[in-house]
Simulated scan of single mutants.
Amino acid sequence: MKSIKKIFPVLILLALPLFAKTDYQMYVLSLGAISSILVISLNYLMGLCGLTSLGHAAFWGLGAYTTALLLTRLNFPFIVALLMGGIVSAMVGVLLGIPSLKIKNVYLVITTIGFNQILELIFNNWVPLTRGADGIPQIPPPSLGPIIFSTPIAKYYFIVSVMLISVLAFARIKDSRVGRAVQAIRDNEMAAESSGIDVRFYKILIFTISAFVAGISGGLLASFIGYISPDTFSPAASQTIVAMLLVGGPGTIWGAVVGGFMLQIIPEWMRFLKESYMALYGLLVAIIALKAPGGIGELVRTLTVDVLMRLKLLRTARKAEDTNV
């Protein structure tokens, strides 16, 4: 049963391109995978540690700009540039993680919003480096040595491969000593500290990991689209990331993936509604939050376990009938 539960989501991700009839649909699916990596990064903070951030798009932007600049100006290999984007974001994550030791709740939220606004201003005004509002064009596509992922389907499978590595890393960390310590801090910080957990260390560590993964997502976005500009990484984008996580399910392994894909695909389904689609989109997100407080990921997990248990009971009943006969 456990192996089926692990393989089934992977098979769905691998099969999604079969339902994409145009390059634009492949483009949306790839954006969904990039968003999923980004939401996984926020899941470390909000899902595991219980720290709310409304400035996560800043780390996303740092990774994107670092990767783009290394690729376009210094001709770095793609993988090196991508990892450097994650490392730069992680270093800044350490600096933001330090204030989290002193401030909590709404004050931390305000701090992260301010941080996001500062980074957006830097992206807009440091024109010699970032080209300001014009953005950075002609960013090379993802590559591995001589292999260039230039077609839509090649880009999708490359991004999904990175996303699956991110999911695996999150699952391992969640069940590790670090993950258990961080979750203990989330549940009761005072009790965790009294039991010998170094709260300061683990909070800064989780900020660092979260920022690194967000930076990787930003680097993938830059190379996938081939162009970035400051407005992509605004505080409004941070709010969307939080919405994705809440819809998918904070703390769940696959919830971030579900949220990332859903909030990329659903707006495209609603384009035919023109001006009114954003209102219905917001209403749908609100309904999901009210009816499935654990997120779609938790709901899907519960339903999957229920179905598998019913199938197991059905097989057991049939074996019993055959034995009696």
Rank of each mutant, 00 (worst) to 15 (best):
M262C: 14
W254M: 12
M270Q: 07
V258Q: 06
A256F: 10
I266N: 00
P267S: 03
F272H: 10
V247L: 14
P250Q: 13
I253V: 15
L245C: 13
V258P: 09
E268T: 00
L273F: 14
L263Y: 09
P250K: 11
L273H: 11
I266L: 15
G255Q: 07
L273N: 06
V258A: 13
E268P: 02
I266V: 15
M270D: 02
Q264A: 14
L246C: 09
I265V: 15
R271C: 00
W254K: 00
L245Q: 11
T252N: 12
V258K: 08
F272N: 12
L246Y: 07
G259D: 12
E268W: 06
I266Q: 00
W254D: 00
E268M: 02
G248H: 09
G248N: 07
F272C: 00
W254Q: 01
P267G: 00
V258E: 04
F272L: 09
E268D: 11
V257M: 05
W254T: 02
G251Y: 04
P250N: 13
T252R: 11
E268F: 07
G251N: 04
G251C: 06
V258M: 09
G251F: 04
I253F: 11
V247R: 04
L245H: 11
I253Y: 09
V257E: 02
G260T: 04
A256N: 08
G251T: 02
W269N: 00
P267I: 02
G248V: 07
I265F: 12
G249C: 11
V247K: 04
M262F: 15
F261Q: 04
M262I: 13
F272Y: 14
L245T: 11
G259K: 11
W269Q: 12
R271Y: 12
G259I: 11
F261G: 04
A243G: 02
I266A: 13
I253W: 10
R271M: 13
P267F: 06
Q264F: 01
L245G: 08
I253R: 05
T252F: 11
Q264L: 12
I265W: 13
F261P: 04
M262G: 05
P267K: 01
G248M: 08
L263T: 05
G259Y: 14
L273S: 08
M262D: 00
P250S: 13
L263R: 05
A243T: 14
L245P: 12
M262H: 00
Q264C: 05
A243F: 15
E268G: 01
G248D: 10
V257Q: 04
F261V: 01
V257P: 03
F261E: 00
P267H: 02
E268H: 10
W269V: 06
E268S: 03
G249F: 08
W269L: 15
L246E: 05
W269F: 15
I266E: 00
I253M: 07
A243Q: 14
R271V: 14
W269I: 08
M270K: 01
L245D: 11
E268I: 02
L273W: 14
A256L: 09
V247S: 02
I266G: 00
R271D: 06
P267N: 01
M244A: 13
T252S: 15
E268R: 03
P267L: 04
I265T: 00
M244P: 10
P267M: 03
W269H: 09
F272P: 01
G249N: 08
V257Y: 04
R271H: 07
